[in-house]
Simulated scan of single mutants.
Amino acid sequence: MSTYKIVDDAYGKSGVKLLHIKRDGPVHSIRELEVSSQLTLSSKKDYTEGDNSDIVATDSQKNTVYLLAKKHGVNSPEEFAILLCRHYLSTYAHVLKAQVQVELYPWQRIDADGKKHNHAFVFTPVATRFCTARMEKNGIPTIESGLKDLRVLKTTQSAFVNFVNDDYRSLPDASDRVFSTVITSRWEYSTVNVDFCKAWNTVKDAIIQVFAGPADKGIYSPSVQNTLHLTEKLVLDSVPEINYIEMILPNKHYINVDLSKFKNVGFAHNDTVLQPLDKPSGNIRAALTRTLVSKL
Rank of each mutant, 00 (worst) to 15 (best):
H117P: 02
K97G: 01
R129W: 08
S29I: 11
L259A: 00
P106Q: 01
V100D: 13
K70M: 07
V95M: 10
L228A: 07
I284V: 15
R86N: 08
L41G: 05
D8C: 06
V293W: 11
Q209M: 05
H20M: 03
L249H: 00
D195G: 08
M247V: 13
V178C: 01
H94I: 05
P125K: 00
G25V: 06
G139S: 12
K137A: 06
P125T: 02
Q157W: 02
L296E: 13
V16C: 14
T58C: 12
V164C: 02
K115D: 09
S158Y: 13
K44G: 05
D46S: 14
L67T: 07
S43W: 09
Q157E: 10
L96H: 03
T181Q: 05
N52K: 10
D54A: 10
V293H: 14
N201L: 04
M135V: 02
K148W: 04
M1P: 06
K198F: 07
K204E: 02
G12E: 13
H87G: 06
V265Q: 09
V35S: 07
N264A: 06
P141Y: 00
H229W: 05
V194G: 11
M247F: 10
V192H: 05
D113A: 15
S53R: 10
K97N: 03
S190T: 07
P222W: 10
N193Q: 08
Q61V: 13
D216R: 04
G25H: 10
T48S: 14
Q209G: 03
C197I: 15
A133W: 07
P280R: 03
K148E: 15
I143K: 11
P106D: 01
D167M: 13
G282W: 06
L171G: 08
C85P: 00
L89G: 05
H117S: 15
K22R: 15
V235T: 05
A159E: 01
R186T: 12
H117N: 13
V35D: 03
S190V: 03
N165H: 06
Y254M: 11
T289F: 08
E144G: 05
A159F: 00
V210P: 01
E49K: 07
D54K: 10
F160Q: 14
L236C: 10
R134P: 01
I207Q: 02
V35G: 14
K261Y: 10
F196M: 10
R86C: 00
A98E: 06
V161P: 08
D167I: 14
G50L: 08
V293A: 15
L153T: 04
N118G: 10
S221F: 13
I55D: 11
K62R: 14
